[in-house]
Computed example of a mutant assay.
Amino acid sequence: MTEVLFYISNTPGIRARLAWRIAEKAWRQQRRVYVHTASEQDAQALEALFWQQPATAFLPHVLANDTIAAGTPVVVGFGDDPGEHHDVLINLSTTVPDFYSRFTRVAEMICGDPEQRNSGRQRWKFYRDRGYPVQDHHL
């Protein structure tokens, strides 16, 4: 059964940095990561940010439509197809993607503004109502 982890913080603007930290930790554990965003524009912005965060580290990643995505440990994408990655899903969308159950682990984040917190509560309820074990980590 898919393990669902919620990372909860009151700090605004932390989602991208937190996604990087979770992806980096999973990569170091030799896991394959798919970072799901709401749109192509969000995916491109996050991928660019991943090249800059932090300046002293490296996280091997590409956009999902890149020709080397299948062989890259961390992929950033959007839409309905996570490609070859089915180990760790980091969901940065406001909704639960249809393919979430293909993954061993799902990382969700609730950070910042009231709208984001509300959509996070809806995602928590979605998983709980389907019987998934949900764990929370308060940051």
Results as ranks from 00 to 15, higher is better:
Gln30Val: 11
Val74Pro: 09
Asp66Leu: 04
Glu108Phe: 09
Val75Leu: 04
Tyr34Trp: 12
Arg102Asp: 06
Arg17Met: 08
Thr72Glu: 08
Glu47Leu: 10
Ala57Val: 07
Asp87Pro: 05
Trp124His: 13
Met109Phe: 14
Arg117Ala: 10
Thr95Met: 07
Glu108Pro: 12
Gly112Ser: 03
Lys25Asn: 12
Lys125Leu: 15
His61Glu: 08
Asp42Val: 02
Arg105Glu: 00
Gly79Asp: 03
Leu63Lys: 05
Gln30Arg: 10
Trp27Asn: 12
Gln135Tyr: 12
Asn91Met: 05
Ser101Thr: 03
Leu89Ala: 11
Met1His: 14
Lys25Gln: 10
Phe126Gln: 00
Ala55Tyr: 10
Pro82Ile: 00
Trp20Tyr: 15
Ala43Val: 02
Phe50Asn: 04
His86Ala: 04
Ala26Ser: 15
Arg21Cys: 03
Val96Ser: 05
Pro114Trp: 07
Gln122Trp: 01
Asp80His: 15
Leu59Ala: 09
Gln135Thr: 15
Asp129Cys: 00
Phe78Ile: 01
Ser119Ala: 08
Asn118Gly: 08
Arg32Gln: 13
Ala26His: 07
Leu5Gly: 04
Thr56Trp: 15
Gln30Ile: 05
Asp113Thr: 05
Phe126Glu: 00
Met109Ala: 07
Gly120Leu: 08
Thr11Met: 07
Gln52Trp: 08
Ala19Val: 04
Asp113Ala: 10
Arg121Asp: 14
Arg128Asn: 03
Pro133His: 09
Ala19Asn: 00
Asp98Thr: 13
Arg123Ser: 08
Arg28Gln: 04
Leu63Pro: 03
Leu59Asp: 06
Glu115Gln: 13
Arg117Tyr: 09
Val75Tyr: 00
Pro114Leu: 05
Leu49Trp: 14
Leu139Pro: 02
Tyr132Glu: 00
Glu24Pro: 02
Asp81Tyr: 09
His137Thr: 09
Asn91Gln: 11
Arg15Met: 13
Leu49Lys: 12
Thr95Glu: 15
Ala64Gly: 07
Leu59Glu: 08
Leu46Arg: 11
Arg21His: 07
Asp87His: 00
Thr56Gln: 13
Tyr7Met: 05
Pro73Asp: 08
Thr67Val: 11
Glu115Tyr: 09
Ile14Val: 10
Gly77Arg: 02
Leu5Tyr: 14
Pro97Trp: 04
Arg123Gly: 07
Val134Ser: 03
